[in-house]
Amino acid sequence: MGLSITEKSFLFDSLTLDPPLRTDGRGSHQFRPIEVSTDFLPNSNGSSHVILSGGSECIVSVKTKVVDHTVESELLVTDVDIQGHRDDSPLVTSMSSLISKLLKQTIDQKKLMLTKRYSFKLYIDVLVLASKSYPVSMISFAIFSALKNTWLPKLISSDDDLEVEELPTFHDYDMVKLDADAPLLFTFAIVGDSVLVDPSFEESLVSNNGLLITWYKDRATSPIRSVGLNNDNVKGFSQHHLEEAIKLIHKYAPDVERALVSSD
């Protein structure tokens, strides 16, 4: 539901102060507190549940099966589902396409290989239970935590099956942790001259533009996108906004990554 004109102008004026005064008093670099729980789905190899203060919620499950990668070259399948949005809505399809493309680029598929013929195939299912603001940050945090806590069965048969035809066999209960680096995605709102990280729903409504920047392997990287956080206040932004966002990322993303890892 939209805000009234007076609310919008009040909020806009607060956000464009120096330093910006946000709806909940956060600093421009401060994220909403999140709660993370991992390994709560007994049937999945890895799972995570991320709750943002304010009620946004997301579940990620990672499942795996063994495939012959000479036949099936696609080793990663990502599916995004957002409650309250149709599967073919622009939000869901573009989010799904963005994330699956990104994961294919970043997850090293060689690490999924078991033998010269067989590989693990990962199924990453994302379910956004509730979301008011642009959910991509939350989704990437959840995927990150899930992949950091994914356990795969330990291979006990030989890993060279080129000459001898052999099906991989696994240890009965020993598991190996998946060694995968997932990217983190950060959303920024540009409001007037302020650049704000992790905008809330109200902040999204008055923002002039949005930025999506990826953090992977200790640096800001592509995909970098401008994203519309609303439809009626969109304006252009200048180069220094983009540079400011990248600066913020370089400064605080390591903190975020550390916090997510240490929460396990």
Partner: peptide, 14 residues
């Protein structure tokens, strides 16, 4: 205020 984010482990589910 140094931390950019606070991440807490969720309490047990019911």
């Amino acid at each position: 205020m140094s931390g950019a984010i606070s991440v807490t482990k969720r309490k047990e589910f019911w």
